[in-house]
């Protein structure tokens, strides 16, 4: 499959006028012309191939929206090279616009006072979608998203979940090759989030649309995106499969052994004891290669072992510790 997005050392810096505090500061602000520089995106490189679904994860202010805005041609990068569908986004913004769909979770592209239908029809005209194709897409998307009941209601009367579904449908009406979504699940309730995730997964698998979505909700990525790009403070922290994240981060599995009666101290080389409650003991397995069979073989029989449980580490927790430690390394 071909590479449709290539980011090479992309950087974006913003200049902001300095603010001063207090009354004296405010007066100083009347004439001052000093700026502070915000490094929103720092030297980020990745490539995305057609048909991928990529989650762009990071806490607030990590530079996710800024990256999306550069890829969609809204912002001009301060440094580095960016290519989307073989074009430089900000130079051929309008040409690119026909081949991409963009959804902003926090801002609506629908006309507030008018029925959803009208916004769709305007979209059809702006993107010059052939009538037949438009009707086919609309019917299909309406069915997938269950929008039949509210297509002719004014947008202001819709729930946030209904609106977000309409936003996504609109972004797909012109058969874009890439769909960018900036925090599509923000503010939605559990049911609506679930609908959005299912829909995006389907769009990616069945229609082959490349999906890039930003989020700070890991579950979005677990369900939709096999690949994860993690950023913080403008910098790339991880790029790869979600499954590999644990390995890359040296994540440890938890092992719990339950005995019929307290067998006394048990020590193992394949697992490290972390807590001993007598009849039940907790271990951490640090080596990714070690299997349960290895552990049981080492333990041997005769301890009156009743139950064994091996827990994969909670990914949320892994990431939390990861951000807390902020390692400088970029695993790949």
């Amino acid at each position: 499959m071909s590479e449709i997005i290539v980011a090479d050392g992309v950087t974006k810096r913003f200049r902001q006028p300095k603010r001063y505090s207090g009354l004296a500061g405010a007066i100083k602000g009347l004439i001052s012309r000093e700026f502070t520089e915000v490094r929103a995106v720092e030297d980020i490189s990745f490539t995305i191939r057609a048909g991928e679904a990529v989650g762009y994860l990071g806490p607030n202010g990590a530079g996710k929206s800024t990256m999306i805005k550069m890829m969609t041609g809204i912002l001009v990068p301060t440094g580095g090279a960016l290519s989307v569908l073989g074009r430089t986004p900000h130079e051929e913004r309008m040409v690119n616009a026909r081949e991409i769909g963009v959804v902003f979770g926090q801002r609506s592209q629908l006309w507030w006072d008018l029925p959803v239908h009208d916004s769709f029809e305007l979209h059809r005209r702006i993107y010059d979608v052939p009538e037949a194709r438009y009707r086919e897409n609309l019917a299909h998307l309406t069915r997938m998203l269950g929008m039949e009941s509210y297509l002719d209601r004014a947008v202001r009367q819709l729930s946030l979940g209904q609106r977000m579904r309409a936003e996504m449908a609109m972004a797909l009406l012109h058969d874009p090759r890439i769909l960018f979504l900036d925090e599509p699940t923000i503010g939605l309730d559990v049911v609506a989030k679930d609908a959005v995730r299912k829909f995006l997964t389907e769009v990616n698998r069945e229609r082959g649309v490349t999906i890039i979505l930003t989020t700070h909700d890991l579950q979005d990525i677990e369900e939709i995106c096999p690949r994860l790009i993690m950023v913080d403070d403008g910098k790339l922290l991880f790029d790869g499969e979600l499954k590999r994240l644990r390995t890359a981060l040296g994540a440890r599995r938890r092992l719990k052994l339950d005995f019929a009666t307290d067998p006394g101290p048990v020590s193992l080389t394949s697992a490290r004891l972390v807590s001993d409650e007598g009849a039940s003991k907790h271990f951490l397995i640090e080596n990714e290669e070690t299997s349960l069979v290895d552990v049981l073989a080492e333990l041997g029989g005769g301890h009156g072992l009743k139950d064994v449980s091996l827990e994969e580490p909670d990914i949320e927790e892994v990431i939390r510790t990861f951000y807390q430690q902020r390692p400088a390394l970029v695993p790949q």
Partner: peptide, 12 residues
């Protein structure tokens, strides 16, 4: 008063 001060361009 302070709010107005914050918008220097507007004042000018």
């Amino acid at each position: 008063f302070q709010t107005r001060l914050a918008y220097r361009n507007q004042a000018w």
